[in-house]
Simulated scan of single mutants.
Amino acid sequence: MALILVTGASSGLGHNTADALADQGHDVVVHARNQGRLNAEAAGRWKGTIVGDLAKLDEIRHVADQAQEFGRFDAVIHNAGVLDSPDVVTVNTLAPYLLTALMDKPGRLIYLSSSMHRGGSTDLRRLTDGTASYSDAKLWVTTLALALASRWDGTTSHAVDPGWVPTRMGGPGAPDDLTAGHQTQAWLATHHNITPNTGGYWHHQRPQEPHPAAPDEEFQARLIQALESHTGVQLG
């Protein structure tokens, strides 16, 4: 069985992903913004819990420190995200980057993207000037996922579009299937003989074409340089 971390697992897709993995017998560590968001009745299902607000850089570091106490993860699913918030870049891009840079390299990295990433900008000045949109942040985290696909021996990396599903973020009128929204993440975290083995952009267990900038090595390099400069943390 695998040891798997799921961020943003107190509700929605993150909770459903963690639940499905626990049902399969895996050791699941769940992250939530604060202790009050964790369901005490479900605590016995988890290998452990981690708390911290991924909108705050110092708390992101604390989340990484807590995660390190569990040892090397077989898979980390970077699920946490926000839609309409001034913290859209910090939660959707900087937090996944920092956790990846600060934690031991896992066997598998899985980052939640969105079909909206295709409307994102490659203008990396937006990373720091307060003008970035949700689409921008999702393009950047998708690019990060694909950049990491061949960076570290023994670590695979993928991005996932879960679809527009009826969670609190997606809203009750979202047209996509809620169950299908978490199945790809759980599958990528635990299954073998996946094609492509690394560097995929997935929707409902099928590879899709991402924004053309995401697999572009020049843009990947510029993004990583910008993230390292902004956070002061090297990716390694």
Rank of each mutant, 00 (worst) to 15 (best):
A67K: 02
D84S: 03
I224W: 11
R151H: 11
A20N: 02
G107A: 00
S229K: 15
V29T: 14
I60M: 08
V141W: 13
N193P: 02
R222Y: 07
R126S: 05
V160Q: 05
M1E: 06
S114Y: 09
Q208V: 08
Q234R: 14
R118C: 05
D153C: 11
A80N: 10
G232D: 04
G44N: 08
D153Q: 12
Y134N: 04
L139Q: 14
N193K: 05
A221P: 10
A101R: 00
K47N: 15
G154Q: 14
S113E: 10
N79H: 12
T90I: 11
S135Y: 10
F70R: 04
P172T: 06
R125P: 11
R72T: 10
Y134F: 08
N193V: 03
P207H: 14
T7H: 05
R33C: 03
E228P: 12
V160F: 00
V89T: 05
P210Y: 05
R45D: 09
E209V: 12
T90C: 11
D58W: 13
G130N: 12
R222V: 01
A174P: 13
H182V: 04
A174T: 00
V88R: 03
G181V: 11
W187S: 15
M103P: 11
A40M: 10
V28Q: 06
A214Y: 12
